[in-house]
Design a protein around this nucleic acid. Structure first.
Lengths: 252, 252
DNA sequence: TTGTCTTGTGACAATCTGTGACAATTCACC
DNA sequence: GGTGAATTGTCACAGATTGTCACAAGACAA
């Protein structure tokens, strides 16, 4: 990889801003937090309940969720229990109107990563968010294509700008579907992604009932990039879940 | 799932016997915390100041540091700034006698991962510790090489990043289920795990009534990695409990 | 329009995994 | 040591999941 691109990649990685989802039934608080956090450079989305949250989580990847404990429908505690069983779930900051010690213990035990009692100082919230994100590896899915981003795995380099795949500086032709699939998988390197999510992220359509076409695309992609397609090392199957991209270090 | 089991599961998800270093100039607090945390299954060491802490950190590997802000010599804030620039530094919980918002902001900004104001409830501290370790299971440096996160037992190397098992550099094919089981057992090396916990950790589902399928998976895994599957040395049965993974030192 | 390339569908094969049955083993109790 | 219940090992089997590939419809350029 040319050093210029490498520098650019690092720059882009450093300046990638975290994506935060606010889940709270209070529209005033949602608005306030969104305004404040957006101003601090985060990408912020808001929803009012757990159902809408599920919808958002299928459509996109979030680094952190700010989650209200008390909500109509499924409450924050239940959401926590559910989310934290999943692999690579977003960080969760739980909010509650009741700041009792037992509540904070219960919240943390159910899978929340942090806990704040309302009312809270937004600067304290910001400090907590920054401290958590500092520890948590960033999900680089929102790197902007126009910056000339390269993703490397093994001896391959996926150029998101040129929309092409290089193998040791030799170009490999991909169809647009193959490229999209490889892009989505590569951007979530190491994270298993379901067929439903892949389908949505590639085609942008809702309610794709039959996602088996993903299998076919994976099959084709494996034939192109795997040395032994029947024993894939890059695109691996996670049975019952979907597929995961593995970033092998380069051999040189 | 009953709350008791849930608490147990969180315990199970934690890394094997986390090692904690307490840095505080108050001998009474040191003693109290050491007693409490040791009782909860942690390995705890105590020192009175930053200088002694440096000495400990050179000699051993710690998952988490409980750090007092105000100390004779180098204070907690300065320690934080210093530590968090290092790679793979321990998690830091900062303690302060002053619970002001500005203090917590300053502490978190300087590299602390969490912040508690004295006096605090030890159960709250425990919940914070468990939540942090759950999210950031620290990997001893020796197990991280250029390939990823490695767990070694006997002549085997389990690569969690690449999702594969190596026997003397030769790849052994594992199914998704076999890999998951081996991963969970290996991560809790030496600690017996019940079928219920294994089932939960592998499938992420609650209330798995019949966990006998674990036996079958163990049987299959033994056929793959044990020299004599009927006399297993790696995956041993703990009658009435479940199974335990034994890490035999390598033969070379 | 024609030809080429792409892509979703469906059919079937291969593999994986939980269930159930029975054998083997362990342990408590006598 | 003997007995029987409880636990675990073993393995065949079927259902579930995924791999493979041919085919036709669609997209696109010449």
């Amino acid at each position: 990889m040319p050093s210029g691109s490498l520098a650019l990649l690092h720059w882009a990685k450093m300046t990638t801003l975290a994506k935060i989802l606010i889940v709270d039934d209070d529209p005033r608080l949602r608005g306030l937090l969104k305004y404040f956090l957006t101003d601090k450079g985060f990408e912020v989305n808001c929803v009012a309940n757990a159902e809408q949250m599920n919808d958002k989580l299928i459509r996109s990847f979030y680094d952190l969720i700010i989650l209200d404990w008390i909500m109509p429908g499924e409450d924050g505690l239940s959401v926590c229990r559910r989310l934290h069983t999943e692999e690579n779930s977003p960080l969760i900051i739980m909010l509650t109107a009741n700041g009792s010690e037992n509540d904070s213990i219960a919240g943390l035990q159910c899978g929340a990563d942090d806990f704040l009692a309302k009312p809270f100082n937004v600067d304290v919230l910001l400090a907590h968010i920054q401290a958590m994100l500092r520890r948590h590896p960033r999900i680089p899915d929102r790197l902007v294509d126009t910056h000339g981003i390269l993703i490397e795995f093994g001896d391959y380099t996926l150029d998101l700008t040129q929309r092409c795949l290089l193998f040791k500086h030799k170009k490999i032709n991909l169809s647009s579907g193959e490229f999209s699939l490889l892009k989505v998988l590569s951007q979530q390197m190491g994270k298993p992604i379901s067929r439903e999510q892949l389908s949505y992220l590639i085609k942008g359509q809702d309610s794709q009932v039959d996602c088996r076409f993903i299998d076919t695309q994976v099959y084709r992609l494996r034939k192109l990039i795997e040395t032994d397609p029947s024993n894939p090392i890059y695109i691996q199957t996670v049975r019952g879940l979907g597929y995961v991209m593995i970033q092998h270090s380069t051999t040189h």
